[in-house]
Every structure is written in structure tokens, then in C-alpha cells.
Nucleic acid binder design. Structure first.
Ligand code: FES
Ligand code: FES
Lengths: 142, 142
DNA sequence: AAAAATTAAGACAATTAAGTCCCAAAATTA
DNA sequence: TAATTTTGGGACTTAATTGTCTTAATTTTT
């Protein structure tokens, strides 16, 4: 559904949403340990997100990654879009060149509305999902 | 969502459902040409399905692959289960070890019901989807 | 100004998925 | 029975994804 890289990135971003702000930056290594991930690999994902300005970073001692308040109001799906591209969630389930009702595949009408809802659910802002973790309604990296 | 192999396999099975029966077997090569796929690769997928008795085959001249009437009444999702295994559609979207409401990930309640509906839609028998192709309501390999 | 800590970038390695090839086994035809 | 045609199975190759390592750039501390 999502690539492994995307899953890691979403977890990391939500970890930042819960634990960081512009006064409290978090090093890649710390996130990697928290979400049990190889730290060099996570670094690369964080760099991609930073390059696209979805997360912020600063170098040197006391440096690290963090989310601005503005970033908290970004749809979570942006993380996936940056890492995986959009097509993964939009393409035809059976591999037709284009998913459309003009040339629908046999499962189109069964499945396309669900794909659309899926994307819509992930349009919810990062802060909404982060709140669930803060409230103890949801868990990261279990 | 599905692996490429699974997509190919579903297409091929639906092609068989539409065009074959126990009197009219179809060679791997013919299917491969129809759905524009490398024939050796498709052969391997068909062999996997045949080994699990989802499709039938016979060797030699006039041989080929076909679906029995019984096979037509198999849920389409079985094709995916044989090629991809079940976990791809059941695992946690964010990669938690287990998808459950006891330890839900932040997107669980947004997404898990959709995953479940997705699987349910694909529980429909192969014949149901094949009918859509016969009626011209749906298309294969466009 | 020098040392230390951190992100940035890109080359490199390992693993997995996708695709190819070869030969054996079985069935048909002649 | 011999030749032909097809599936069956496994080894092999290629491509994509995942993961590692090294070095440079930037910032802070001393
Ligand atoms: S055409 Fe296949 S999912 Fe829409
Ligand atoms: S726990 Fe993540 S989708 Fe259910």
C-alpha cells in the first residue's frame, strides 16, 4: 500500500510532531532509536522531507529536525507524496494505464471509491494524527 | 497496493474466465500476447496458480490453461493470496507489527475499515468480474 | 581560531522483486 | 515409436528498492 520508506517517513514525521518544536530540535539518531530504524537510512528520508520544506532542520550542536506550526497543518499525505510520489495511490489496481470510468477495469467500481476515501482520510493534517498519539489513543513504532 | 505479479495474474485469470473452458484451453503464449506481457514470466505465474489448483492445465498439443466451472466460483482475492500472500492487504499501513484496535497506529481508525472493505469487495467470485468484461462494462489490459 | 556536533549529499552494497532461459516431463499427432 | 507441442521447475540475470558509508558544509562551544 505504502512503500517501507513512506511508512518510516510518516512515523518519523509524527514523532517530530509529538516531540519537537522550533525550540526543541531532535537529532536523526534519536528518532532512529525511538522508532527502531537504521539511522543513516532515516537520515536520507528526513533530508528528502527537509529539501521539500515539509520539515525543518538546523546543523551543528543543538541542531536537528523539527516541525514548525505551519508544518503541523500540512496534510499527512504530503509525506507519502514526497517519498513515494502520488501515483501509488491513484493508479489502477489491476495495472491499466489509466484509472477512469471511461475504461474501467473489472474491479474499478468495487475499489476506486475506496482508494479515493483512503486518500481523503490521509488529507487530514499532521497535527490531527499527532494529537491521537499525545492522547494515548494511538501508538507509533510498536 | 498489489504487486505487479498479482496484477498480471488477476488479468490472466479473468482472461481465462472470459475465453476458456474445459473444451477450449488457452496457451500461455496466447494469453501473454493478449494482455501484453512477457510470456515466460506469465508462465511462471500460471504455474503457481495451477499448482494451487486455482486454474487447470494440460500439456502437449491442444493443451493449455483453463478454468473449470468450480474455479469460476472462487473469490478473486484467492489469486492475490496465492501470488502475494495475504499479509499485504492485512498489515498495518504504517508498519506496526500487528494491525489491531488494541495498539492502533495513528491512521488505523481512518484506514482500517477501508482496507477491510477492499478485501471484502475482492471476495466476489471470479465469474462476477468476468461477466463485466463479457458485457462490455469493464476492460482488461488497456 | 580550533574542535566538536550535526545535517547534506552522493557513491556504494545488499536484498528483494521482476523477468529470462534452459531442459525435463507429459500429451498429441503422425 | 518418433517428432512435435505444450506445461513444469529451477537456475540465472536484471532492475528496483532498501540500507550503508564516506566526506563536505554548517553551526556551536570553548
Ligand atoms: S480502472 Fe482499475 S481501478 Fe480504476
Ligand atoms: S494499526 Fe495501523 S492500520 Fe491498523
Amino acid at each position: 500500500m505504502l512503500s517501507s520508506s513512506s511508512k518510516y517517513a510518516v512515523n518519523a514525521v509524527l514523532y517530530l510532531a509529538v516531540h519537537s518544536n522550533d525550540k526543541n530540535k531532535i537529532r536523526a539518531k534519536e528518532i532512529a532509536e525511538a522508532i527502531k530504524l537504521p539511522s543513516p537510512f532515516l537520515s536520507k528520508l528526513l533530508q528528502s522531507l527537509s529539501r521539500e520544506n515539509l520539515i525543518s532542520s538546523s546543523k551543528g550542536p543543538t541542531g536537528g529536525f523539527y516541525l514548525t506550526k505551519q508544518a503541523l497543518n500540512t496534510p499527512l499525505i504530503e509525506v507519502v507524496n514526497i517519498i513515494d510520489g502520488t501515483s501509488r495511490l491513484e493508479d489502477c489496481v489491476l495495472g491499466l494505464k489509466k484509472c477512469s470510468s471511461e475504461q474501467p477495469c473489472p474491479v474499478h467500481y468495487s475499489v476506486q471509491p475506496l482508494k479515493q476515501k483512503f486518500r481523503k482520510e490521509l488529507q487530514e493534517n499532521i497535527s490531527v494524527f499527532a494529537e491521537k498519539v499525545k492522547n494515548g489513543e494511538a501508538y507509533l513504532f510498536v
